[in-house]
Structures are given as structure tokens and as C-alpha cells.
């Protein structure tokens, strides 16, 4: 056994060929004086020599053929493509979903800070403050939808109000007879789009069933 832990560490570094010339010389000098360390180093070298003396084995001859027989018929790179070819429904669903996402994304267009108003009536848009104002004495009949702006009703709105990325500032005299819906957070917006989308699909399909029912009755 080496004479100290420190020397043992040095012997390992010597074995790993990590010493510079000076360190190497110092260790060699120490080993020539210290019997314990000399024995330890000798044993270590012998150990490595014994381990390295073991012969290399060759793999069994049939190993390549065994593996080649187990390879899948389809090249692995095309796995995904083949899977979709086998499942056309998933392909349709994936495409459909993609279109849906794109239409959603178009809602978040780059000119996102532009105020957009949908509705009919007398109002004016204060672009610098980002406010849509329905002035006092004016009344809007119908629904109104504002994107990227606040709404200040000083007059009257007879219909529903939808605010995307905006707030409703309630003025004392003004009033909204319908519902006010504020959609601000990103996920809320997605939910809102989904809701509209689903209600569209369902009203469409219920229309069709009604028609079908009628044709049966008459």
C-alpha cells in the first residue's frame, strides 16, 4: 500500500499520464526511496497489464444475419408517414386542426394594436387613447364588437357588446341593454373562438337535421 493517500493519488495521476515532467520526476524519485509506494506502483502496472492481456473476442458469425432478419420491412425514417397513410382519418383531423389553428392565429395579427370595430351606429374612435366612444344622445341598435380598444358608452347600446383586449368603461349616463363580454387573456380568446366555432358547427348540423326531419314528415 502507498505510504500516504496523497502519494496514492499521485500514483493514479502517474498511471493516467496526467503529470507534467517535473511532477513525474518527483514521483519517480519518491518511489525509488519508498518501498511501499514502489510496490504499489508495480502492482498497479501488473494489474493493468493482466487486464490488457485478455484476448479480444470476435462476435459470433451469425450476429449480423440475425439482426438483419429482425429489421422492420419499412425503413425507420418513414414510420410517421406510413402511419398517417394507414390512418387517413387522423390525417384529416390533423389538417383540420391545423387550419383551425391558422385561422385562430390570424386573429392575433401583427397589427394587433390597431383598434377594430364591428357594428353599426354613430360612434367615434379615439385612436391615441385607444377608446371607442359612443357619444351622449347617440344610440346603437345591434351588437358591437371591439378589438384592441376600450369602450366608453355615454349614449346607449341596445345589443350585446364583445370586447377583445379591452375594457368597458361605464359612464354614468350611458347604458348597454345587452350582455357585455370581455375577452382579454390569450386562453380566453382561444376559448371564445372555440365557442363560436362549435356553436357554428352545431347550429349548422341541427339545421340539417331539421331539414331532414321535415322531408320525412312531408
Amino acid at each position: 500500500m502507498a505510504c500516504s493517500k496523497n502519494q496514492l493519488q499521485k500514483i493514479h495521476r502517474y498511471m493516467d499520464e496526467e503529470m507534467n515532467d517535473e511532477e513525474q520526476k518527483m514521483l519517480e524519485e519518491h518511489v525509488s526511496d519508498c518501498g511501499d509506494c514502489a510496490a504499489h506502483l508495480k502492482e498497479m502496472r501488473q494489474t493493468v497489464a493482466i487486464v490488457q492481456s485478455t484476448s479480444h473476442f470476435k462476435a459470433p458469425d451469425d450476429i449480423t444475419q440475425n439482426v438483419m432478419n429482425q429489421l422492420p420491412k419499412q425503413p425507420p425514417a418513414k414510420k410517421g408517414k406510413v402511419w398517417l397513410q394507414k390512418h387517413p382519418f387522423m390525417m384529416t383531423a390533423a389538417t383540420f386542426f391545423l387550419v383551425f389553428i391558422i385561422s385562430l392565429a390570424s386573429g392575433f395579427s401583427p397589427d394587433a394594436n390597431q383598434i377594430a370595430v364591428q357594428g353599426e351606429g354613430q360612434f367615434y374612435v379615439d385612436e391615441s387613447n385607444g377608446v371607442v366612444i359612443v357619444p351622449e344622445g347617440e344610440a346603437i341598435y345591434g351588437d358591437i364588437r371591439i378589438e384592441n380598444g376600450d369602450l366608453n358608452v355615454e349614449g346607449e347600446v341596445h345589443g350585446d357588446v364583445t370586447l377583445v383586449n379591452g375594457e368597458h368603461i361605464q359612464a354614468s349616463a350611458g347604458g348597454v341593454t345587452g350582455e357585455i363580454e370581455e375577452i382579454n387573456a390569450f386562453y380566453e380568446r382561444i376559448w371564445h373562438h372555440t365557442k363560436i366555432f362549435i356553436s357554428d358547427v352545431f347550429s349548422l348540423s341541427s339545421d340539417t337535421t331539421e331539414q331532414t326531419d321535415l322531408s320525412i314528415w312531408f
Binding site: 479480444h56 473476442f57 470476435k58 462476435a59 459470433p60 450476429i63 449480423t64 439482426v67 438483419m68 429489421l71 425503413p75 425514417a77 418513414k78
Partner: peptide, 19 residues
Amino acid sequence: GDQEAFAELMDLYKDQVYH
């Protein structure tokens, strides 16, 4: 997608991996 090429690759490395 050339499966036969995999046999070439195996012949290069099989002994080392096996060992």
C-alpha cells in the same frame, strides 16, 4: 432507406460491441 448498408455498418462494429 438502404437496409443492406446496415450490414456493412454492423461488420465494422460488431466485434467491438460484442467484446
